[in-house]
């Protein structure tokens, strides 16, 4: 086993920031920082509800630019460029997170923190399927 890419320190700091972000959104606006639910709600085009959703998503988009600026270096990014696989994955993630009412942030952090049984079951399911598909994709030469 090679753990040379394991970065527990940076991962924990990042996780704390994500938790802090969720607390700010919940304490002040009463909303859960579940990205799929915040983004999915945008697509209902309800004008009374667009401002904070767009602002939250906008903040997420800008975050990496701030880190890149402060560090003064390019951020690591590596992906397999297979257009059809990207389309299939995007459709699955978009439809699946809305059908299951949450993703890694909404179920994974907000839901598990509240000891929500639905969220715990969702996390075990999507991590389990994710492990299976990532393993099969590597064995099948897709990634």
């Amino acid at each position: 086993m090679d753990f040379s890419n394991f970065t527990p320190g940076a991962a924990s700091i990042g996780g704390l920031l994500i938790g802090a972000s969720g607390l700010i959104l919940f304490a002040l606006l009463g909303r859960q920082a579940g990205v799929s639910s915040v983004a999915g709600g945008l697509l209902r085009f309800d004008l009374r509800d667009l401002d904070w959703r767009l602002a939250f998503i906008g903040g997420i988009v800008v975050g990496p630019l701030v880190v890149a600026f402060v560090r003064g270096s390019e951020l690591p990014f590596e992906i397999t460029f297979n257009p059809w696989m990207l389309v299939a994955a995007g459709l699955l993630v978009g439809f699946g997170t809305r059908l299951g009412n949450g993703c890694t942030s909404g179920h994974g952090i907000c839901g598990v923190s509240r000891f929500s049984v639905r969220s715990i079951v969702a996390v075990v399911t999507f991590v389990g399927v994710g492990v299976l598909v990532a393993t099969l994709a590597r064995l099948g030469g897709l990634s």
Binding site: A89, L91, V93, V121, T125, V129, G130, L132, V133
Partner: peptide
């Protein structure tokens, strides 16, 4: 939903 999401995430 979690199964579909996990599949896309793992891809």
């Amino acid at each position: 939903g979690a199964v579909l999401f996990g599949a896309g995430w793992g891809l």
